[in-house]
């Protein structure tokens, strides 16, 4: 962790704010029918805790060591599953983006690399974009042709009863060097059109589950829409133009978002099991 001077604060402010610059790394490797973790380096706000392995899968929990990300922070997690390894990453608590001492944006990048016959399951708790926060998040995911991925990301716009912060994300997924999915989202004050009936409407939580599975080449998942009227939540499961499927959901809050994401994920597991039988 290195202290770093944030970009010039806006005129009228002279906080001289300091952001945190940190890159945490985890690497999983297959060894004797199990997965080991030759690299497990926490940094800055990210501490890693090993959890008990399940089957051949190594499991890691990200534990927050400090309040982050705050304005001006430059944070990054790199996770790699080497050939044949199976890595499951969760987090102990929701990530809370806060305004911090400056209105400058924070960055929080996640880079996942999955080698042939390897798998990463990235299933953290949601990101909460608190009032006044300003976060840019870039997900870059590189998969080998036979790699598998389950990635869940959830955004809750504002804590209970407060307006949202500003959050911009870009998700770029490459498989065998070719782009499979490229997606940007920008929500909160200053993001044009985000709360219109074409984008989020009145919903304040949105999330996705990305499933990449070489078997989908043979038997892609069927598109499906879930509408949970009592929860005011809705989701779509759709096959991508490649061996992958994406669940996109919106809900009034993080609790109902998780509920519909789980329901959509359960359907996807049903349909893909059926397809494989």
């Amino acid at each position: 962790m290195t202290p770093d001077t944030a970009p010039a604060p806006p005129a009228g402010r002279s906080t001289g704010a300091v952001g945190v610059r940190a890159t945490a790394r985890v690497t999983a490797a297959a060894r004797a029918g199990a997965t080991v973790l030759p690299v497990l380096d926490g940094d800055g706000p990210f501490e890693f805790r090993r959890l008990r392995s399940r089957d051949t899968e190594a499991r890691v929990c990200v534990v927050g060591a400090m309040s982050a990300p705050l304005g001006g922070d430059r944070l990054r997690i790199e996770a790699t599953a080497l050939q044949g390894a199976s890595l499951h990453i969760t987090s102990a608590a929701a990530t809370l983006a806060l305004r911090g001492p400056t209105t400058a944006h924070a960055t929080y990048d996640v880079h996942l690399t999955v080698a042939d016959h390897a798998e990463i399951r990235w299933l953290p708790k949601p990101l909460i974009s608190a009032a006044g926060s300003n976060l840019r998040q870039a997900w870059t995911i590189d998969l080998a042709p036979t790699a598998r991925l389950v990635l869940r990301e959830e955004q809750v716009l504002g804590r209970m009863g407060e307006p949202p912060g500003h959050v911009a994300t870009r998700l770029t997924v490459r498989r065998g060097g070719h782009v499979l999915l490229d997606q940007e989202a920008e929500y909160g004050p200053g993001a044009p059109g985000w709360d219109t009936p074409a984008v989020l409407g009145h919903h304040r939580a949105t999330g996705q589950i990305l499933l990449i599975e070489p078997d989908f080449d043979e038997s892609p998942l069927e598109p499906q829409v879930l509408i949970e009227t009592p929860d005011d939540a809705q989701a779509v499961l759709t096959p991508l133009a490649g061996p992958a499927a994406l669940i996109t959901a919106i809900a009034p809050d993080g609790f109902r978002l998780r509920r519909i994401l789980n329901a959509a994920y359960a359907t996807s597991a049903d349909t893909s099991n059926r397809a494989r039988q």
Partner: peptide, 21 residues
Amino acid sequence: VDVLPAASAPLLDISAQQHAT
């Protein structure tokens, strides 16, 4: 081409698939 924008709209996405059926 990676530089091109990729802005998404969840409600447009969900309702488009629903409408198709």
